[in-house]
């Protein structure tokens, strides 16, 4: 008799626990059917503080400089490539702004030059982004490279970002560039 009562109470609790698990799961699942969120760096808010390079759980950081070619002016004196007050516009290491030499400068036609980011070398420090934004069109922009991003629960850079530029967005809104709209197909 005593055993039965204990068993009965246990069964009641079991059903209550089961019902609450199913309830919570149901409520949340109906909301999540909209698809997953991804982290997005808003370049309009970004101040290029350099923390993207150091705070990411991935080394080197999943934040990379991405070149929006449609916005580029193909300048000879590129504010993102050269240090300020550089003496001669050559590809010498002493002239480069990028600490890892991740920008490749190639001649296109007089007086234009093409600048490409070598993703493997880019550490996402944002120095070139700052330079391009200050002196040029702002075609170099920091973005989260989603093939590298592990999409943490709580992005470690978002926590450290001084300008609150990180937010969760649906997949369609990932890769938002400042001053330019893309027709991407992902």
């Amino acid at each position: 008799m005593k055993k039965d009562r204990r068993e009965f109470i246990n069964t009641c609790f079991r059903f209550a626990a089961g019902a609450s698990i199913v309830g919570v799961a149901g409520v949340l699942a109906s909301k999540s059917a909209k698809g997953d969120f991804f982290w997005q760096l808003d370049p309009t808010k970004c101040t290029q503080c350099g923390r993207c390079a150091t705070s990411c759980v991935v080394t080197p950081s999943a934040v990379k400089c991405i070149h929006v070619y449609d916005m580029c002016g193909y300048c000879d004196l590129c504010g993102g490539y050269f240090r300020p007050n550089v003496k001669n516009l050559s590809t010498g290491a002493e002239n480069m702004l990028c600490p890892t030499g991740a920008i490749k400068r190639t001649y296109v036609e007089d007086p234009y030059f093409k600048y490409e980011i070598i993703d493997e070398l880019c550490i996402g420090c944002g120095k070139c982004v700052k330079g391009c934004g200050a002196f040029g069109n702002g075609s170099l922009q920091l973005q989260i490279s989603h093939d590298l991003c592990v999409n943490c629960n709580e992005c470690a850079i978002a926590r450290d970002c001084p300008s609150d530029a990180f937010k969760r967005v649906p997949l369609e809104e990932a890769y938002q560039f400042a001053g330019f709209k893309t027709n991407k197909k992902i």
Partner: peptide
């Protein structure tokens, strides 16, 4: 600096946006 009109038949690379 507006985007130049190229005469040498330069084709612009695609801005990379790797998928998750």
């Amino acid at each position: 600096f507006p985007r130049p009109e190229f005469e040498s038949g330069y084709t612009q690379p695609v801005t990379s946006m790797p998928e998750p």
